[in-house]
């Protein structure tokens, strides 16, 4: 079975700093892959490249087995890939509905739509059903996102990505700032999204969360993938030792 998304030999440097050195990565449809590694291991850089936010210096990206060029987030989105960044990329002064549809507004039919008028009702209905389906708690669809709790904002960001993603979702540290209940909501959400046949890439520092939600775990160390484990065949100890570079399945 070909991976829905695969990266081969990705290289990226910032000035003299090698952020990624010959890094490999793959995710299958409908599975949750956790991407772990110490700070500076290259996880976020890899995600930014795979989601089109940054260009790689070398290597290739295969989507459904075919080589693709990702020069902008729009390219990735057109392939059906969505990303929830650590900063969530929400506009704090806009409402959940406006954030949900930002860049993908539903326009009114006919002349009004051509003039730039939006169909607010369709967008509100769409947002509500998306939030409900994924169990995101959004108390006020008209309020501004900036005034909401961290959990609500996280829920909005993940729900937005899930609503638009056809193939792959990247989640960069989605549980970092959340409380226990909110974290559980997000982890449930992740399972629900993968249940819809979407490949989920889950970056986290939290081993318990990784062990709970992931099907496979890929470990990065010093700018490349050093190990891949099935959850059933591994343990936290093994993961931690791989993260420190003590285990290397893949040659550099």
């Amino acid at each position: 079975m070909t991976a829905v998304l695969e990266a081969r030999g990705i290289t990226k440097h910032y000035g003299h700093v090698e952020a990624l050195t010959n890094a490999n990565f793959d995710v299958q449809a409908g599975e949750v892959v956790a991407l772990i590694g110490d700070n500076g291991a290259g996880k976020s850089t890899l995600v930014r490249i795979l989601s089109g936010a940054e260009a790689a210096d070398g290597g290739e990206v295969l989507f459904d087995g075919k080589a693709v060029q990702l020069t902008s987030p729009t390219d990735a989105r057109e392939l059906g890939m969505e990303t929830v960044f650590q900063d969530l990329a929400l506009a704090p002064h806009l409402s959940p509905v406006q954030n949900m549809y930002l860049g993908r507004e539903v326009m009114r039919k006919g002349l009004l739509g051509k003039l730039g008028f939006m169909d607010s009702k369709a967008m509100r209905d769409g947002s509500r059903s998306a939030f409900d389906r994924l169990g995101a708690t959004v108390r006020d669809l008209n309020g501004t996102v900036g005034g909401m709790s961290g959990g609500q904002r996280q829920g909005i960001a993940v729900a937005r990505a899930a609503a638009w993603a056809q193939k792959v979702i990247f989640l960069d540290e989605p549980t970092a700032a959340l409380g226990v209940v909110q974290t559980q909501n997000v982890l449930d959400l992740v399972r629900r999204v993968s249940g819809e046949g979407i490949g989920v890439v889950f970056i986290s520092h939290s081993m318990p969360h990784v062990m709970e939600v992931a099907d496979r775990i890929q470990v990065m160390w010093r700018g490349r993938r050093v190990a891949t484990y099935n959850k059933a065949d591994t343990s936290m100890e093994q993961l931690v030792s791989a993260m420190t570079g003590a285990v290397a399945q893949e040659a550099s």
Binding site: D87, G103, M107, L115
Partner: peptide
């Protein structure tokens, strides 16, 4: 009422978010 207006707010609120949203 229009998308142009919405984008005006979005850019002022968080330009990077707007850019990532396309």
């Amino acid at each position: 009422r229009t998308r142009l207006g919405l984008y005006t707010y979005a850019i002022g609120s968080n330009a990077e978010a707007g850019r990532r949203a396309g």
